[in-house]
Write a protein that binds this DNA or RNA. Structure first.
Lengths: 341, 341
DNA sequence: TTGAAAGCGGTACCAG
DNA sequence: CTGGTACCGCTTTCAA
């Protein structure tokens, strides 16, 4: 490792017969310095391609310009878009993002938090796990004066800035769309009711039915636990084999809808003519199924970007943020699986 | 921001009437220290939950324990798996990963490199962009004694450790499989021949044909430029409308295969009976199409993990690495789109 | 407008 | 086995 020593601020000072403080000031654009000095220093620095030592600056200023970010899983398309959005915005403001995954396990979320805190991040962007029923590990950030901005999946156990998807509205629109397409017995493959997003979607589903004069029936709702493709398949089988036999399915997530689609197709049902199908999240793959899957877009990129923006603003103002929530609207994406007309 | 001052090493030293050096040694498990001292220090540290200041340590040791990682796009499923693999392995060894994207543009790759270098990463893991025809920005890392490990898409312009997918073998196996399924006129939707992976896949395709006594024809090869779904659709149309009319398609990537599949289905072709279809990369969505798409798995997680491991070993040994290549085998994933028997 | 100097929190060398 | 101390590179008072 033939590491050639890099030129430091002191080197410049010595060579230019200035004090380190002057050089520092010149480079950082302080006022009250003669134009000549500034010119000279800048030129010299440029010529010897001086690069300030980030570690020294961080150390001195007691900040890293790094934001921690915890998501359940990077490989989930939605989260990868939020990451992408947060990264771009952060970079624009001179921040970088240190990532960690919780795998939707509280245990791993705690580990990740401690890890990021130890790395000295300036703040935390987090979408909490489904298991998160305590928030001491998040409070730890706040205790050290590091803001926490929650997004997508949030917990009220930690007051502070939150960005949520308007799941209620998204579900309401989706189900309303199904009703307008003429479907009348709309079932819902829901998630766990303790999980806020899932509950909101359920409520949106219910309200849409009621507002359009359709009866809500418990028997048309199935709770997925793992939110898996298999559950989509199995619950759809149960529903289609039951007396209720719905003519449309609104699924908590595209993956579940995919399972439903597989069951329906393998059992010879025609989508969307015989039965309509609707997912949620607008995964990349929804476009590529046959028929393509209608869904609800959550604007992951924008969400990540907003979270980062918010964080940076808090950091700039030395503020921990109020206990306020920003609701992000969703957008219905109508595709083949629900287009009867 | 009510940041309560944290206890430092010096605090401990003062309170315990020891020197900072002793405390440091005790905490870092140095030999030649009395058991008593170690005990005492550790207990005190524990009790006052002392946490070493990462920034100070980094600064002092002139390293960050952060690895830079540049991929074309995080949202690509394959890359998100490599990221995940690299992150887990890095964490296991006390390293974290700072991510950046090149969007397959040289310009952005250079920016990302400079950015990561400026952040003071200890080394770089990179899958280069398709445009990368020079490597000064990577050489810059080497010049500062920071190892660069390339993976997946690599350039020979920078000598050093590389992890490559054995694209040749993967393509060879894929095409051999098609031949065994009885397909005889196998077309190839290839990528840009200047891109190594694409070229290797092309060569594997060609060799498989030759080894099985089938004629290779230029007219059955179409070069995709953007590797897009649209190109898959269009080139498939061209092929199917030409006199050549293949009975199977081997596509450079699953996305292209998807485009091909869409054209074929919309034109009434039966897959896999009339025409066989094969992708490459084994994207998440390949499983969910109808029919499901045969593909070639590239083990992204393992690849990222190996890249990180390699890097950490280099770092440990203060080594920049030789100009050697690790070839990772692929695995054929046979699904509905190519299963005639 | 500039300089001198004190650290930030550790680590590691040199003594003892 | 332990202590003293210089110092990593930069920022920021305080003083001139």
């Amino acid at each position: 490792m033939a590491e050639k020593r890099k030129v430091t601020l002191k080197d410049i000072a010595k060579d230019l017969n200035l004090s380190p403080s002057t050089v520092s000031r010149a480079l950082n654009g302080y006022p009250s310095l003669s134009e000549d000095t500034i010119q000279m220093v800048k030129e010299y620095a440029e010529k010897h391609n001086y690069v300030p030592n980030t570690m020294a600056v961080n150390f001195r200023k007691n900040r890293t310009s790094i934001l921690g970010m915890i998501v359940p899983q990077i490989v989930h398309h939605f989260f990868s878009t939020t990451i992408s959005g947060a990264m771009e915005t952060a970079k624009k403001h001179g921040y970088s993002i240190l990532l960690a995954q919780s795998y939707d396990l509280l245990k791993d979320e705690i580990l990740a938090s401690q890890y990021l805190l130890g790395m000295g991040v300036d703040g935390l962007l987090i979408s909490v796990s489904n298991e998160t029923k305590e928030a001491d590990h998040l409070q730890a950030f706040v205790d050290e004066g590091k803001p926490v901005v929650q997004f997508d999946k949030v917990t009220d156990l930690l007051p502070g800035p939150k960005i949520e998807v308007d799941d209620f509205q998204g579900a309401y629109q989706a189900v309303t769309h199904l009703i307008r397409q003429g479907y009348r017995k709309i079932a819902h493959l829901s998630g766990r009711m303790e999980v806020k997003n899932a509950h909101e979607r359920f409520l949106g589903y219910k309200k849409a039915l009621e507002d359009h004069g359709l009866e809500f029936r418990e028997s048309l709702v199935k709770n997925c636990f793992a939110i898996s493709e298999d559950e989509g398949f199995e619950f759809t089988r149960e529903l289609m084999e039951s007396v209720e036999k719905p003519d449309a399915l609104f699924c908590i997530t595209d993956l579940v809808a995919l399972g439903a689609m597989n069951y329906l197709k393998s059992s010879g049902y025609q989508i969307p003519t015989q039965i309509g199908l609707m997912g949620f999240s607008n995964w990349m793959l929804s476009e590529y199924t046959t028929p393509s899957l209608s869904s609800v877009d959550q604007f992951g990129y924008r969400m990540g970007s907003r979270a980062a923006e918010w964080m940076i603003e808090l950091l700039k103002n030395q503020d921990m943020g109020q206990n306020e929530t920003l609701e992000m609207k969703t957008e219905l994406v109508v595709r083949g699986s629900s287009m009867r007309s």
